[in-house]
């Protein structure tokens, strides 16, 4: 397993000795379904941002949208493909597709 530390390098007992290390844990590796956003349909309501359990939805303020918000995309490092965003989207702008479709 590349990138992982050896037994002599990590704290004993699985202790996590530094706070706020969740960002280092890339849950995106778990994903079997990938959310694909159709920005033509998206109304930037940010329901997906609100519900995403991994805070993988990127949002920002914008002068170009009606509500001043922009759903800027999904961070695939952390999106584990749970499909919550697709389920809560009021305009069905997110489609879950199998990861196998993206294999090169």
């Amino acid at each position: 397993m590349p990138g992982l530390k050896g037994w002599k390098e990590v704290p004993i007992a699985g202790v996590v000795d530094t706070p706020a290390t969740a960002r280092e844990y890339e849950t995106g590796k778990w994903r079997v379904m990938r959310p694909i956003v159709n920005k033509d349909k998206c109304i930037n309501c940010m329901q997906c941002w609100l519900y995403c359990p991994d805070m993988a939805i990127t949002g920002k303020t914008s002068t170009e949208t009606k509500n001043g918000l922009d759903m800027a995309g999904i961070d695939m490092k952390y999106c584990k493909g749970c499909g919550t965003c697709a389920a809560v989207c009021p305009v069905k702008a997110i489609e879950m597709k199998p990861e196998t479709e993206f294999l090169k």
Partner: peptide
């Protein structure tokens, strides 16, 4: 010095922690 004890330990590190235990 905040620490976490008892978090889930998967196939990526469980084995290493058991080797530490043997040490």
């Amino acid at each position: 010095k905040p620490v976490t004890h008892g978090s889930i330990d998967m196939f990526d590190y469980y084995f290493e922690h058991h080797r530490q235990q043997e040490e």
